[in-house]
């Protein structure tokens, strides 16, 4: 049964990108274990506002695990200790009475801090703009059944397409590498006939952008896969390597 618990949260506070940050600890009383983690942060912010203090900035939007906006490194895990979910899907029943919960922003050179727990993830957008799409040439809508796609390919493409671009892979990686993200975005298109014509160009330019933005070299530790809320497999990274190397050797 869900109880009401008293907890402490140790939160990273940083006024701006260039300011020096520090941890602040706040006590929270009677938090229902049935509430979500972000609701707990809402309660904290209400408390802070009532005390005349500045609320904690954190990212969130859909609060149902589909938009990829929420983040947070909670007690040594991106998206908290519970597996296969985003922070917005995390519930306070993963914590116990008397716990001190450490909450940090994603930390990586590719994701600079904007304020408190909010980091700048536009790097992912830039990588997508470098080639993470199929060029649309207007014309009639082709019949859906005109392009046969083997079932296993379709499944793998759908699995890769589950990536919500939250950045947990980068946050978990000791190398600050964005390979799982890029691999998922390259794979979801490379596996399908619609994505094939541009596959080589896509792999090359997305990897080039990823490198340019300061993400690290993947050494296959697999931390990304473990922490990914959408269970994206690192097999996608092997596929990305394959696509990239094929494209380069063809040049």
């Amino acid at each position: 049964m869900d109880k009401d618990i008293n907890i402490k949260v140790k939160v990273w506070r940083q006024n701006g990108p260039k300011e020096k940050g520090r941890f602040e600890t706040y006590a929270l009383k009677n938090i229902s274990q049935g509430s979500s983690f972000l609701e707990m942060l809402d309660i904290l912010n209400e408390q802070l506002i009532n005390e005349g203090k500045i609320p904690v900035a954190f990212d969130h939007d859909c609060r149902e695990g589909i938009c990829g906006m929420c983040s947070l490194y909670i007690n040594g895990h991106p998206h908290g200790p519970d597996g296969e979910i985003t922070t917005c899907q995390l519930h306070m029943r993963s914590f116990n009475d008397g716990d001190t919960i450490t909450i940090e922003p994603w930390r990586s050179a590719g994701f600079p801090i904007i304020k408190d727990l909010v980091v700048d993830r536009t790097a992912f957008e830039k990588i997508m703009q470098a080639g993470g799409y199929v060029s649309v040439n207007t014309g009639g809508i082709p019949d859906a059944n005109a392009i046969p796609i083997p079932r296993d390919k379709a499944e793998l493409a759908m699995d890769a397409a589950a990536c919500i671009g939250c950045g947990a892979c980068v946050a978990a990686c000791k190398n600050g590498s964005a390979m799982l993200f890029v691999a998922a975005k390259v794979s979801q298109l490379a596996l399908l006939p619609q994505g094939k014509p541009e596959a080589a160009r896509r792999a090359k330019s997305m990897v080039a952008k990823m490198d340019e933005l300061g993400f690290g070299n993947c050494t296959n530790t697999g931390a990304c896969e473990v922490e990914c809320p959408k269970n994206i497999s690192i097999s996608n990274i092997a596929r990305l390597n394959r696509e990239f190397l094929k494209a380069k050797f063809k040049d």
Partner: peptide, 19 residues
């Protein structure tokens, strides 16, 4: 390069990711 890509600020909580 990977050490630099990790960023100047490190996590205070030790990573609990099983690898």
């Amino acid at each position: 390069q990977n050490w630099i890509a990790r960023g100047r600020n490190r996590y205070a909580s030790k990573s609990k990711t099983q690898v």
